[in-house]
Amino acid sequence: MLMLPAMARSSCERVIVSADPAYPPLHWYDGKQLRGASIVIITRILTDLGLPYELRYLGPWKRVLYAAKNGNIDVITTLKITPERRSFLIFSELVLNNPVAAFVKKDRPPPFSKWDDLIGLRGGIARGNRFGSVFDEFMDERLNVREADNLETAFNMLLANRFEYVITGYHVGQAYIASANIDDKLIALQPFLIDSQNLFGFAAQSPCIAYLPAINKQLEKLHKEGFIERALAQARADWRKTPIIGKN
């Protein structure tokens, strides 16, 4: 069956939602469905607003971004703002904070107090990760950073001394460390590299963008109620109990 892109629709009959399938506890794919804190938050909001929705697993993160860029989905939940993403997404208000950290081996942490302290060290990131325009520019121009296929691989390379640090969101890094039972081997350097905000990103051409003001209002309400923090805490517990990322 031919699937028309979201931008071709004249009305928002349902909100098509997708997410990075390997970024727990914010969002992940367990082999059957998308799960995580951001999924709980967006579905709660859409339900409260009486908007039908579909959670759509699309595969790797870059494919999710491509689908939003081409109008095949309505919203990505959640991600950081970058100049490139601004060219095809319209962002919500704050959903949750996701500080970016450099993770290192606990038995050999390098001296660290500022970004420049990472210069000259061998770093790693998961493929496709970006952290905001200011730090991304610094990373690209000043740091020796290589991409690994995914965060699990990057952490294994860190443990094998092929990397000296791995940059990722603090929440996802902590989730992987906990699920792999390597809490005693890896730590996040302090201070955080950046205190990054994660937002919903709506495809700019989606007819569902008309509901963004109402979604922002619901976000404000859920923040005041403490729902966001509770969803994040529950997602951490769920991931630690069943740390599985599935594939079709």
Rank of each mutant, 00 (worst) to 15 (best):
A203S: 15
A8K: 11
P191G: 12
V64W: 07
M3T: 14
F155A: 11
G246P: 04
L151H: 14
A37E: 03
S206H: 08
N98K: 05
P213Y: 06
K80S: 13
R86D: 02
D184V: 10
T242K: 14
I245E: 02
A19T: 02
N70A: 14
K247G: 13
P25W: 09
G124D: 06
K105I: 05
R122L: 08
D136H: 07
S18P: 05
L219F: 02
D184S: 14
P24N: 12
I41E: 00
L151T: 14
N129E: 15
R130Q: 12
G169Q: 08
L65F: 08
L118N: 06
S179Q: 04
T153R: 10
M157H: 04
I244L: 11
M7C: 15
S87W: 10
I177F: 11
R130P: 03
C208K: 07
L212K: 09
A102V: 03
A233C: 04
G128P: 04
I244D: 01
L46E: 00
V145N: 07
F135Y: 04
P99L: 13
T78N: 10
F163V: 00
L199M: 01
A102I: 10
N181Y: 03
C208E: 11
M7A: 13
R35E: 10
L89F: 00
K247S: 09
E164T: 04
L2F: 15
D183V: 06
Q205S: 10
I245G: 04
T78H: 12
E84K: 07
A210G: 06
T77V: 04
